[in-house]
Write a protein that binds this DNA or RNA. Structure first.
Length: 552
RNA sequence: GCGCCCGUAGCUCAGCUGGACAGAGCAACGGACUUCUAAUCCGUAGGUCGCACGUUCGAAUCGUGCCGGGCGCACCA
């Protein structure tokens, strides 16, 4: 819609000989802040002031006189130099019909042929349950994936399992120690081991099912390794369960260990070696990342002969590179931002353009309780898990809360507010909008023997109230808004949109009646609009993974 | 020291590829249920958009410099 109007304006300028080369990209056609200014507004007149040496107002008036002849517009006004455009009724009616037809996929591009992309998120180490920070990453990543899918990409959702490093070893040692402590309480626990109670539970399970096997093992090393693998699988299952709690599922699980076992690391390094990008120094192997914008070269193989984590990550991204994505997005904790330049450099060494790899950084979640910040530490086992939170406040509230802030800003999570289950939580506000519509539909069926859930026609020209126009206007811009939010990696805009739509619905609801005794035509028209609005809400809910409520 | 993020109403945050009076929720105060669910709606009050220069017809938005908070600067993962 915006594009359509912009093109018309560009055409006019061309015809009038006013299309100066520097302004075409600067022409904005946007819905204005205030609805009374119209459906769309443009700033062209300001851009021309310099070239024409005339006041914006005068230029705007000239363009207005041409624009208002177009049947797509019902009215064109000039105010303070802005050109305000009002779209014709017919345009809006078609949008409402579209929303009714497309159900909970209103505006979605159904042919996913815009490209193939990969979004990797969460990727928590399988050494403990998911905590709040992971929850935020999970919600943001999932929402992004759904948004890109909505606008026509084929999206693969991926979880990278860090199961080859020291943490896994430490995990094994911790579990093994707890295992031994069952018979021998003074068995030493590793100093930097994982202290959470879940370690004891895993040990108990092992004691119950695998006691003989472990005790008969020849070396402690073997036993620790066995415990590590067992614990890893146990915790990965838990992680999957936890993610399911907030409607997050992955298409691909990639194991770091498998990358090594399948020679992926060698393969990737060979590729770089053949390009002449590796060299030896001080007994270690280095990659020339500084050629691609990193501040210095990085070690890939340590002087003791083992690979760095970076090497595995290169192999991992080489694998993604070979899978042929148009671009990839990694959702990372902000504490990793210093790591991005070197990974980007390595990836560019494969030969992809700079914008092939994108990272969305998630700032840390700070937890507050009783007005005090709660320090969370995985090592001490002292933290609130995602599961605990979901059980307390509900899935939808957790999703909505994590999705509602710009990922790249710090998030203060006040447990007391979240646990209060009160209307302080905005998710109730949007849910209520949906439930209200469903409630009206139930009443319509009961009192008027008219079921809006089934297909029906309506005369939309009867929708002339302010609130109705406001809703129709929202519907006409929703798709474009989602498109822009996706492309800019701004998932929190979805919650803003949802809130906005709910607010318009609540105002409408308060101001007007839908079940009208003696005017069936009007009733049908309003119910029809409600149905369109409900579909739009469902579409937004679906992106977030929130379940629409039929009643509250 | 260098790099990234943040600093907007008492609190939590939107707005930031420059544009029409700086917005919302919560908290405060005052109204609206014989009406399809008042988990709602309407109104009042509350702001030198961290500070200072600069660019511009126009700056919360862009640039530079400060101040304050967080994070990161490994042959760790």
């Amino acid at each position: 819609m915006k594009k359509e109007v912009k093109n018309k304006i560009v055409e006019i300028l061309k015809k009038e000989g006013l299309l100066f080369p520097d302004i075409e990209d600067k022409i904005k056609v946007e819905p204005p802040k205030e609805e009374l200014y119209g459906d769309l507004a443009t700033n062209v007149a300001f851009l021309l002031t310099k070239h024409l040496k005339q006041k914006p107002q005068d230029i705007a008036l000239k363009i207005k006189s041409i624009l208002e002849k177009d049947p797509m517009f019902s009215k064109v006004e000039v105010l303070n130099g802005f050109i305000n455009i009002f779209l014709s009724e017919n345009y809006y009616h078609n949008i409402v019909k579209k929303a009714v037809l497309e159900k909970d996929r209103f505006g979605e591009v159904l042919e996913k042929n815009r490209g193939k992309i990969n979004i990797e998120y969460v990727s928590a180490n399988p050494t403990g349950p998911l905590h709040l920070g992971h929850g935020r990453g999970a919600v943001v990543g999932n929402l992004l994936a759904n948004m890109y899918s909505y606008i026509g990409y084929k999206v693969e959702k991926e979880f990278y399992i860090n199961d080859a490093g020291n943490q896994i070893k430490k995990l094994g040692q911790s579990v093994y120690a707890r295992f031994r402590q069952i018979d021998q309480p003074d068995y030493p626990f590793p100093e930097d081991g994982y202290h959470g109670d879940y370690i004891k539970e895993i040990a108990k399970e092992l004691y119950h099912y695998e006691r003989e096997k472990i005790l008969s093992m020849l070396s402690e090393e073997e036993a620790v390794d066995f415990c590590a693998q067992y614990a890893k699988n146990y915790l990965l299952d838990k992680i999957k369960e936890d993610l399911k709690l907030i409607n997050v599922e992955f298409d691909i699980w990639t194991s770091e260990k498998h990358l090594y076992e399948h020679g992926k690391v060698e393969q990737a390094l060979n590729f770089l070696k053949n390009k002449g990008l590796l060299y030896e120094k001080d007994g270690a192997l280095w990659l020339k990342t500084s050629l691609y914008g990193d501040e210095k070269d990085r070690v890939i193989k340590k002087s003791d002969g083992t690979y760095t984590y970076f090497a595995a990550d290169i192999a991992y991204h080489f694998d993604k590179y070979e899978r042929g994505y148009d671009f990839i997005i990694n959702v990372w904790g902000a504490d990793h931002h210093g790591y991005f330049p070197r990974l980007k450099a390595a990836v560019m060494a494969f030969g992809v353009p700079e914008n092939w790899i994108n990272v969305v950084f998630i700032q840390l979640v700070k937890l507050f309780k009783d007005g005090q910040e709660v320090k969370m530490s995985k090592r001490s086992g002292d933290f609130i898990t995602l599961r605990e939170l979901v059980e307390e406040v509900g899935k939808d509230a957790v999703i909505y809360f994590f999705a509602s802030k710009d990922p790249d800003t710090h998030l203060n999570f006040d447990i007391d507010v979240a646990l209060s289950k009160s209307n302080e939580n905005p998710v109730y506000y949007v849910q209520y909008a949906h439930a209200r519509i469903s409630s009206v539909f139930r009443e319509a069926k009961e009192r008027f023997d008219f079921n809006p859930e089934e297909d029906f026609d309506a005369d939309l020209s009867l929708l002339i109230q302010e609130e109705e126009k406001s809703l129709m206007k929202f519907l006409s811009t929703m798709q474009q808004e989602i498109e822009e939010a996706a492309v800019k990696n701004q998932p929190h805009k979805i919650t803003n949109l949802t809130y906005d739509l709910a607010s318009k619905l609540h105002k409408y609801y308060y101001q007007h009646k839908f079940l009208i005794e003696n005017d069936e035509k009007l009733m049908r028209a309003r119910l029809y609009l409600l149905k369109a609005v409900r579909n739009a809400l469902r579409t937004l809910f679906r992106l977030m993974g929130i379940t629409p409520l039929e009643r509250m």
